[in-house]
Amino acid sequence: MNQLIIATRKSALALWQSEYIAQILKNEHNIEVILEGFKTKGDVLLDSPLAKIGGKGLFTKELEESMLRNEAHLAVHSLKDVPSFFPKGLVLAAVSKREKSNDAMLSQKYQDFSSLPKGAKIGTTSLRRKMQLLLLRPDLEIISLRGNVNSRIEKLKNGDFDAIILAIAGIKRLGLDKEVNFIYEFSKDELIPAASQGALGIESIEDVKILDLLKCLNDENTLIETTIEREFIATLEGGCQVPIGINAELKEDTICIRAILGLPDASQILKDKKIIKKNDFKGFGKILAREFINKGAKELLKKAEGMI
């Protein structure tokens, strides 16, 4: 095989991610890699929150269909946008090295989170972020914010919001720190990130030769962290339709795991923090999810769905 085709969305961040992976594959295998652009429903339907129109799978479906039609060999996703289950014939082929997974607040006027005035208007499309922001500051007005990263920043500059919340990974990858006056990075104890935030997932057709070519993209530490996080989400059967945060952080031989779920208005939450040995990571996401289920997580998530 002397050519690979990557199916990609056309947003600046999606193109950066696909080009980044393409360059690694070119360097590793001396192979031609072509990017084929597609527009997904998630890019088109910008008037409604994701939770109301079908969740994050809206960003992957068209790319998956292009692979199943043999128009592309692989797709590069933000792993947090990738559902737990794959269509027949497609697999998660690799998980690449993770960028920082924290959330960040961007503002033109306010230096940090505590500087925000009472009733400040905060833009985010994420129910997970909304829940945790209201947990920290019940006085805030959380407003749904869709669109690509650049359009969100434009709305901030236009004065539509006092601040917006984005993943620090996207800000770093696109060099957006120069676009706004202030960036405040939340600690993971303040805002627990989404499952797999900051990691790239490479989905491909189930072909031995292609899977072999993609092995070089795998990062062992990221795979360990995101395995725990994705197991937690899959066991709870929760996607972006409900507010769930889960982050595993591997340092040397220990993993710190933070998890939270609850109602979008933060009136009820379940939250926990665990430290485990690196060697105990297999199956721990399921174990933690079952602990949450025993505390009433399923009932709480069902209630959360009714509030969307």
Rank of each mutant, 00 (worst) to 15 (best):
M1G: 13
N2D: 15
Q3R: 15
Q3A: 11
L4R: 02
I6K: 04
I6T: 02
T8P: 14
T8N: 09
L13I: 06
Q17D: 06
E19G: 15
Y20Q: 12
L25M: 08
L25F: 12
L25V: 00
K26R: 14
E32T: 11
E36S: 13
E36F: 05
K39H: 12
L46E: 00
D47S: 12
S48M: 11
S48K: 15
P49S: 03
L50T: 05
A51C: 14
I53K: 09
G54V: 10
G55I: 05
G55D: 04
G55A: 02
G57L: 01
F59L: 07
F59K: 09
L63F: 04
E65S: 12
S66I: 01
S66E: 12
H73G: 08
A75Q: 10
K80N: 13
D81V: 00
V82R: 11
F85K: 14
L92W: 10
A94W: 09
V95Q: 13
M105A: 02
K109S: 15
Q111S: 14
F113A: 08
G119F: 11
G119Q: 05
G119A: 04
A120N: 03
G123L: 09
S126M: 06
L133G: 07
L135V: 01
I143Q: 04
L145S: 10
N148M: 07
V149K: 15
I153V: 13
K155C: 06
L156N: 08
L166I: 06
I168Y: 13
A169M: 04
I171P: 07
K172P: 00
G175Y: 08
L176H: 11
N181K: 14
N181T: 14
Y184I: 05
E185H: 05
D189M: 00
P193F: 01
Q197M: 11
D212Y: 07
N218A: 09
T222S: 05
L223A: 08
E225Q: 13
T227H: 13
E229R: 02
F232T: 00
F232G: 00
I233W: 09
P243F: 01
N247A: 11
L250K: 04
E252T: 10
R258M: 03
A259T: 09
L261M: 08
L261Y: 04
Q268G: 01
L270M: 04
K274M: 06
K277V: 04
N279V: 10
K282M: 09
K282V: 12
F284M: 10
F284H: 08
K286L: 05
A289P: 02
E291V: 03
I293E: 14
N294Q: 13
N294I: 05
A297I: 03
K302L: 15
E305H: 10
E305Q: 14
